[in-house]
Amino acid sequence: MKYVFILLFSCFSFISFSQNKLSAQSRVSLVTIAPGTELYSFFGHTLIRVYDPDTGLDRAYSYGTFDFQTENFYWKFLKGTLPYSLSYNQMSDVLNYYAQYENRTLREQVLALNEQQRNQVFQLLETNYLPENRYYQYKFFYDNCATRIRDIFEKTAPGVYPWEKLQQLKGLSYRDWMNRYLPENSWVTFGMNLALGFPSDVKASASQACYLPDNLEIATAQGTFQNKKIVEASLTLFEAQPNSPVGFDPLGPVPVLMVISGLLLLLSTRFSHEKALLYGLDIALFFIYGLLGMLIFFLATATDHEVMAYNISCLFLWPINFPLVFWFAKNPNQSLWKKYIRIAFWVAIIAALIAAYFYWGLFLIALPLIIRFFFLSQFYSK
C-alpha cells in the first residue's frame, strides 16, 4: 500500500508540473495600459501576459489588486497597511474591460525570451500567486504593479535593462514624475502634493522611475539580452478614442485659493476696525487649516507611508494653531501672542517657500494663512 501511495503521489506531481509548464510555442509579454480619467487610473497600469496556444492558456497577471471587503478597509488604506495582491484574469476579459468600459489604450511588447526563461517567469508568477505569497504591502513609489514586474524580468534575464543609458528616465524626482500625470488645476493634485514629504523629492534613478508603467515600457523597449533586443514585437491591442479635452475648472484649487486670498487681503485692510468680524474669520480659517494640518501630521508621523514623512507642509499647517487662535487672534497686541504670531508668520512663509520649490501649488495653499499672520503680526500691533 505504501508503494501504491508513492506511485500515485509521483503521478499527481508529474501531472501538476506538466500543467504548469509552458510549451515551445508559448510567449510572455509586457502589456501597458494607458492612463485613464479616474484617480485610480491616472498613472496607467501594467501586467504580464502569458500565452500558450498548445494548452489554451492566456492569462494576464496583475499586481496591485485589493479587496474593498477587507476588514477596516479605509483605516488600513489610510495607515498604509492595506494588503494588496497578485491576481490573474483571462486576457480576453482584461482586453474587453479596458476597451469597452474604460476606453484605455493597451500596448503589448512580446519578449524574446527562450523557453526556459518563459517558464521561469511563469513559475515565478505561479509561486507568487500561492495564498501564502500573493499578499504584500503596496508602496506607490517603491513596490507596485510596475516595479514587481521589472524585478521579475531582471531576475529572469539579468542585465536586461541598460539603466545607465536610459537618460530620458533620469533627473526627475518621484514627485516630478507623478505630477506629469496629474492635471494642474485639480484638488487631487494639490492634495497629493500636500501629503508628500521629502522622500518623494529624492531624484529617482532610471530603475526607480519605472514605478510608472509608461517608463517601464520605455525601458523594456531599450532592453537587451545576449546582444539581442528583448522586445521581438510591439503590438497595439486596442487604441482608445480620444477623450474630450477638460476645460478650466473655476472651482479648482487655483481660482478658489486665489479668491480666498484676495478676499482675506481685502477684508484685512478695509475692515481692520471690525474686530468681531475678523476674529470670526480667523476662527473659521484656522479651524479648517488646523484639521488639515492634523491629518497631514498624522500621515507624516503615524502611518506606514514612508514618502509622507518629513513633510515641510506641517510647519505652515501647524496643528496647534487652531486651538491657539482663540487667544492670539483675540489678543494680537499682547506681548506673548505678538511674539507667537510673528514667529508663526516667518516659519509659515519660509516653509511655504521651501515647499513651493518642490511644488508651486503648496505656496498657494499656504497663502491665506500667511496673509492673516502678516496682518495679525504687523497691522494690528501698530
Rank of each mutant, 00 (worst) to 15 (best):
221 A>F: 06
46 T>A: 12
199 P>R: 11
268 S>L: 04
209 A>D: 09
39 L>E: 13
57 L>A: 08
320 I>F: 13
256 V>Q: 01
281 L>W: 10
123 Q>C: 07
2 K>E: 09
350 I>M: 01
248 F>G: 03
258 M>H: 04
361 G>M: 14
219 A>K: 04
18 S>C: 11
177 W>T: 06
147 T>L: 08
322 F>H: 03
79 K>P: 00
91 M>T: 05
194 L>G: 13
122 F>W: 11
201 D>E: 15
300 A>N: 03
12 F>T: 12
138 Y>H: 13
62 S>W: 01
144 N>S: 11
25 Q>G: 09
178 M>N: 13
242 P>C: 05
198 F>G: 00
192 M>S: 12
278 L>Q: 08
293 G>W: 09
266 L>T: 02
339 K>H: 14
123 Q>F: 14
97 Y>P: 02
266 L>I: 09
72 N>I: 00
245 P>E: 14
173 S>L: 06
336 L>Q: 07
168 Q>A: 14
206 A>K: 03
311 N>M: 07
325 V>N: 11
201 D>L: 12
241 Q>L: 15
301 T>M: 15
163 W>P: 01
82 L>G: 05
284 A>W: 11
239 E>N: 14
88 Y>R: 01
227 N>A: 13
221 A>E: 13
149 I>R: 08
380 Y>E: 08
287 F>E: 03
131 P>R: 07
85 S>Q: 13
